[in-house]
């Protein structure tokens, strides 16, 4: 991979038209090589090579100890046939739909609200607060939330008890634990799409709003007819990035529930981890990884396709 990765050296273009020749051709090759080598070799070994290896490994059964055995499509069939793997993919897809919808709704609402008239210090304050969870580790956040959502001594149930709601088994009931995963994930992630929307809103010219105000358009009408159409390119990017990130969810369910109760909060990446590093089924783990990669690419392509109908470019 490494030697083949550098035929560019051959290329050292003889342009001769530059301000001054940069020395003989071989010297220019060496220069290009030294600039590129660390990145190209590194990406070759640690990203491109592993992608190819993953795809190949997906057709084998391998436990590291004995020799790999070619098993054809068995590992891929498992993704559909094995109940745990299947449920994990379904969980992941449901999670993506619910979490991304909530994340986009919350962050869009907050971005629109923060763009209203307010003192600069207030805007800076709110923006910093909404941004803050992004700098924390998902593991730490999950540690904190695990205490807050504890059934007996958690603050969430204590607050609910004040309004007369009895102890919710947040981390031990299948539905409630799925809800917790969504809430904890969105709590930490909404700041990212919020930033995108704030940037998108700032790029909408003020004159458009002024003109429509003169024509008598009020808040909701402006939101529907001006803000949302002009924000649609940002919306596409926000959705694409939020979906890609949500499809990879791992840290929160690993720390909060370990995938349980049962398989209720097991996700695709958790199954990759467990197949490879718990059950030593490296081929199956690779197959699940390949399916996840195809899913990410497919869903992204689908969003760009659908966007042609909804996105409005100025």
């Amino acid at each position: 991979m490494t030697a083949a990765a550098l035929p560019t050296a051959r290329a050292a273009v003889d342009r001769g038209s530059g301000p001054r020749s940069q020395g003989p051709a071989w010297r220019r090759r060496v220069v290009v090589l030294t600039f590129l080598a660390p990145t190209i070799i590194g990406i070759g070994i640690f990203t491109l090579g592993p992608i190819v290896a993953s795809i190949l490994l997906a057709f084998f059964r391998w436990d590291i100890i004995t020799d790999p055995e070619f098993v054809g499509l068995t590992n891929f069939v498992d993704v559909v046939a094995d109940p745990t793997v299947r449920v994990s993919f379904i969980n992941t897809l449901v999670f993506v739909v619910v979490a991304v919808t909530l994340q986009i709704a919350v962050s869009l609402a907050l971005a629109v609200l923060i763009s209203q008239r307010m003192p600069t210090w207030a805007r800076t304050f709110f923006r910093s607060v909404f941004f803050f969870p992004l700098i924390l580790s998902a593991a730490s956040v999950s540690i904190i939330m695990r205490y807050l959502f504890n059934e007996e001594f958690g603050v969430v149930n204590w607050l609910l008890s004040l309004v007369g709601i009895g102890g919710v088994p947040w981390l031990t009931s299948p539905t409630a634990s799925a809800v917790v995963i969504v809430l904890v994930y969105v709590w930490q992630q909404f700041g990212f799409t919020f930033l995108l929307f704030v940037g998108g809103l700032a790029s909408i010219p003020t004159e458009v709003y002024e003109a429509s105000s003169i024509d008598g358009a009020t808040g909701w009408r402006q939101l529907r007819s001006i803000t949302l159409p002009l924000l649609s390119p940002t919306m596409l990017v926000a959705c694409v990035m939020a979906v890609i990130s949500a499809l990879q969810i791992f840290d929160q369910p690993y720390v909060l529930t370990r995938g349980g109760p049962g398989d209720a909060t097991r996700t695709a990446v958790m199954v990759i981890y467990e197949s490879a590093f718990r059950q030593l089924e490296f081929g199956r783990a690779s197959a699940i990884g390949v399916v996840l990669m195809l899913l990410i690419m497919g869903v992204t392509a689908l969003q760009f396709r659908l966007s042609r109908r909804f996105v409005f470019y100025q």
Partner: peptide, 24 residues
Amino acid sequence: FRGRSLWFSLVLATMMVPVQVTIV
């Protein structure tokens, strides 16, 4: 250098691949 844009798009293409896919 020759192939500059080709190499660059190859580098870009790896940006999309999540670490979980290559971890094994």
